[in-house]
């Protein structure tokens, strides 16, 4: 019963703050609403027994990506206080975009409801930490992907530094 309450709390937090992200005219409000969305998703991860992923979510998304996005907004706007307006598209475009996204949401939800999922859920008693199994998998079955990921990170760092450099 407590799990239900926690799930609904985080679901409302995620959807409400995502609505602010999508609809707010003030870009700073959007970024800070994105913080609550990421935090809510981390809570959902904890609810799904993914402890390592929850900590990773908080460290990388909130500690890294969000700070980068705030830097991006601050460096590319004429900052005159906390009120940084974003240009919106017209009403007709907003209407059709809303139609498309509602269509996507309704169709995915309909598929999810009408499919008879064969679930074998994890009970809370037979799960300890996931860190040990994730580490084992990363260094055995997924070793090639892991190493390619590190090379990709190196390439991305060099490329980003090269592109953003002042001439």
């Amino acid at each position: 019963m407590l799990v239900d309450i926690v799930f609904w709390f985080f679901a409302v937090l995620i959807i409400g703050s995502a609505l602010v992200v999508v609809l707010s005219k003030n870009m700073i409000y959007s970024v800070f609403a994105l913080l609550f969305t990421f935090f809510g998703v981390a809570g959902i991860y904890v609810l799904l027994n993914a402890d390592f992923l929850a900590v990773t979510q908080i460290m990388i998304y909130i500690g890294g990506i969000l700070v980068l996005l705030i830097f991006g907004i601050m460096l590319t706007s004429n900052v005159t206080g906390v009120d940084i307006k974003s240009v919106q598209t017209g009403k007709i475009q907003m209407f059709f975009a809303g139609l498309v996204s509602i269509l996507i949401i309704v169709s995915i939800s309909f598929i999810a409801y009408s499919t008879n999922w064969k679930v074998s859920p994890t009970t809370n008693t037979d799960v300890s930490t996931t860190i040990e199994s994730i580490g084992k998998q990363l260094l055995t079955n997924y070793l090639l992907a892991f190493e390619s990921a590190s090379v990709l990170l190196l390439i991305a760092i060099i490329g980003a530094a090269l592109i953003a450099r002042r001439k």
Binding site: I15, L19, A97, S101, I104, I105, S109, A112
Partner: peptide, 10 residues
Amino acid sequence: AILFGLGIFA
């Protein structure tokens, strides 16, 4: 799905 739709909208 709701989060996906909102992201597409943005």
